[in-house]
Amino acid sequence: MSRKLDWAWRLFVTGIAFALFSLGGLVMTVAYFPLLNLIVRNREKRASVVQLTIHRAFRWYIWIVKTIGVLSIDVENAEYLRGLKGTLIIANHPTLLDTVFLMGQMDKAQCIVKHELWNNFFLGGVMRAADYVRNDQDPTKLIDDCVAVLERGDNLIIFPEGTRTRPDEILGKLQRGVANVALSSSAPILPVVIHCNHTTLAKGEPWYRIPPTKLAFKIKFFEPRQSQTLFILDESHSLSTRRMTAAIRELLEEQIVSGKAA
């Protein structure tokens, strides 16, 4: 009986968690951001206010879903984030909430957002106001935009897989965009490994198909390193991006595997 009760409670709070997220986005889009547009006229300043708001909103959100019992989350080595600037944050992407967790941990972080979200009813206004990097631009422009973010001193979160990790894989195929950004900037790389005990929240799972036990997340940050130390630069750009992508894969894979064993 108590198992059933536990399941029913988690289904209920999971529903609340999903609703809260969409509603939060909508309220920001229809009320908070239009107001902010009137008060803060400078676009760059506004974007940084919005990013800080999102960071705080995500922090609260995580606190709420933890408190009502949707999930637990264990963060390791968060001290690497203190005073972090102009750093490329690379992570695996097992769940829907990865971005929320990472942005909730960092107050100055940008991310690349798929262009579909720009026109999303709930979240579109948030994306536009925060001035995040859009992924449907001309590829060289996308790389340049990322480099500009880093050089401005903001941190940039990239999931090199470009999409969520499939449940049956350790790490999906890596896109070479990250390597391109790292090669074109001198930004250090900070690896993050995210682990979740269930494959719910993976791509294509409806929200109400909740796992048999409570969701437990582990997020581990690693010491930032200079990208040049990871691989041997080749004189050809295309080969360098391949070397670097392989090095990034090795770096993440190693940590994911050792984290699983622990």
């Binding site: 590829p139 790389i143 070479r176 965009g177 391109n180 295309s238």
Partner: peptide
Amino acid sequence: LDSIDAVDL
């Protein structure tokens, strides 16, 4: 090959 590769090519 990706779009950046195309540019390199």
